[in-house]
Amino acid sequence: MAKQENWSTVIRPHSGIFDIDFQEIWKYRDLLWLFVKRDITTVYKQTVLGPLWFIVRPVLTTLMFTFVFGKMAKVSTDGLPHIVFYLSGVTFWGYFSECLNKTSNTFTKNQGLFGKVYFPRIIVPGSIIFSTFIKFLIQVSIFLIVWSFYFSKGQVSPSWQIALFPVVICFMAMTSLGFGIIFSSLTTKYRDLRFLLGFGVQLWMYGTPVIYPLSAIPKEYVDIVKWNPIAPLIETMRAGFLGKGSFDWNMFVYSGIFAVVIMAIGIVIFSRVEKNFMDTV
């Protein structure tokens, strides 16, 4: 009678710390792509400019930064042309901040869906990382057009760090996913965090070399900014594309380790919350 039966699903109240069924997530990969497709195709439905909106935002932001910080405040740009300097910062930071903002309300935004059907919840923030990446690629192409203009005039010169582009994007995606899902997990219970995140991302941008180069920071503060895991990534890309920027292997590796750790923490917290967030949200 005591025969071992092979149950395919076992539902229990609590499980271990690291309880993620990667096999199951893999089974749902088609859903991930359908979510990506949905996010891309539906955002600008019934708009006149359509996908052009992907470009309008970074371009206008860059123009505004050029005016305020470049012309009025005269913040250093390491001698680089203003437009391409700000556009590079805005484009790369934009990917990070959008991923973070969007993944951070995974649970609150998808209550209706999550309350009615089960699928590995991580699919939703995962799909956000990819759909934002596709938008980011469009923005990068604009950046490259502007960049090639300055390149032809010889005002910017790429260097070998440009090869780190995919690695940088990976680190950014992991860091934002990690932070995003931690926030989304905690906001199911404590809504206070939603307000914190809103301006937190804004402030974080000013703590990152987006509108200024790392070299412009007074010596006594450099060490503080160095703890910011996104700072080395932006600087690496500046060094790679524009030829001027501080690149340091130690800092780069630090960013990578940070990305892995924060993502692991995020997944652990997320997998604990996903199981019964419906009761608290």
Partner: peptide
């Protein structure tokens, strides 16, 4: 969609 407080389900 949600988990039980105690007990188990096998399917």
């Amino acid at each position: 969609v949600t988990t039980p407080t105690t007990g188990s389900v096998r399917m």
